[in-house]
Design a binder for these strands. Structure first.
Lengths: 195, 195
DNA sequence: ACCTGAACACCGTTCAAGT
DNA sequence: ACCTGAACACCGTTCAAGT
């Protein structure tokens, strides 16, 4: 029963979901697969690359085709898909942020966001910048949401300075920032029309 | 010549600037201070807390008073101050993101952004959410900028898919996303007036 | 082609004991 | 009060050698 690349990936995701990113070590992964640590390096050149592969796996479905709609609804749907994909795995947002930061993620989520901005009517160069802006927001907000979940689950019922923090659901918080972004794009479009 | 808390902080910042966050280890820091690793734990309970202290030091000045201006100019100035503060130290944005994520940063940069949103005319609860949105953007964009700098310095002149990436300066890229945010806030203000 | 065994060069943290 | 010495329990990665 030989080890396949997919087995390594699957084992890594299993550890991620059960114990979190901090406990996802090459040694622990090797043990869970019944193999020596060095064996993993035949399938992945290093840990960073393995983590990036998990990120790509996580985000593989966000770029799937969408029912035709208004550009703002499309943009919002892509953003929500991405958030949902990150939320589906423990520390998913932190993992994705690390992979993007290391420039090892090869999924097309960013391109999809950029394309949606082009379809909205933004110039190509602005669309790239807008996509990055939205991407940073999604990663940051979702990271925050997941670290909050982690704190809650660890029995720390520290009441926040702002009571709104607890009462406002993660989705509502997410939607607020998202609407700020979409409104920003909208006013850029209007400005372009006036010229 | 006793070791003071400030010496540890200063030594850590020196290593950060010269070798980066990855090489800022407790052991290396101890060596550079001519002390045993364990000595550091008399001054800081753990590494995370030390890193958060660096973050607070870095961002201490962004909340300083501002010349009275329009709310949008004030918001932009705070955002630029924060970016500049992060850019002033190698891996500054990554460090700050980690400290915020661990909820150990005690500086009032976030509160300052929220207050600026209140002054703009946003309700208190929306201002908190808007401040977070802006904060994630600043951290994400600046992290990206610094990791790009790192790649460039490491002789990797890989041409990007988009030639705009290279030609658009970091400041211009930053200003684009910032204007998206400010325009988003502006349209939220207009929506409130109409009600 | 795929993996083991074993090492290399590190980590953060703790804590009795010293001064 | 402040630090040393020394350990504990780990890391990621490499690579000759095995099958």
């Amino acid at each position: 029963m030989q080890l396949r690349r997919g087995d390594v990936l699957g084992g890594a995701i299993a550890i991620l979901d059960e114990y979190g990113l901090g406990d996802l070590t090459m040694r622990r992964l090797a043990t869970s697969l019944g193999v020596q640590p060095g064996a993993l390096y035949w399938h992945f050149p290093n840990k960073q690359t393995l983590l990036a592969a998990i990120t790509d796996e996580m985000l593989a479905r966000v770029s799937a085709p969408l029912d035709a709609q208004d550009w703002d609804a499309r943009l919002a749907t892509y953003a929500h898909r991405m958030r949902d994909a990150l939320l589906a795995h423990r520390d998913g947002a932190e993992l994705a942020a690390a992979s993007y930061s290391a420039r090892l993620a090869t999924n097309d989520a960013r391109d999809t966001l950029a394309r949606a901005c082009v379809e909205a009517g933004l110039p190509d160069d602005e669309s790239e910048l807008a996509a990055d802006t939205l991407l940073y927001y999604i990663l940051g907000q979702t990271m925050d949401e997941q670290s909050r979940m982690q704190m809650d689950s660890h029995g720390a019922l520290v009441e926040d300075a702002s009571p709104l923090y607890d009462s406002t659901s993660g989705t509502a918080r997410f939607d607020y920032g998202l609407s700020l972004f979409v409104d920003g794009v909208r006013s850029r479009l209007r400005a372009a029309v006036r010229d």
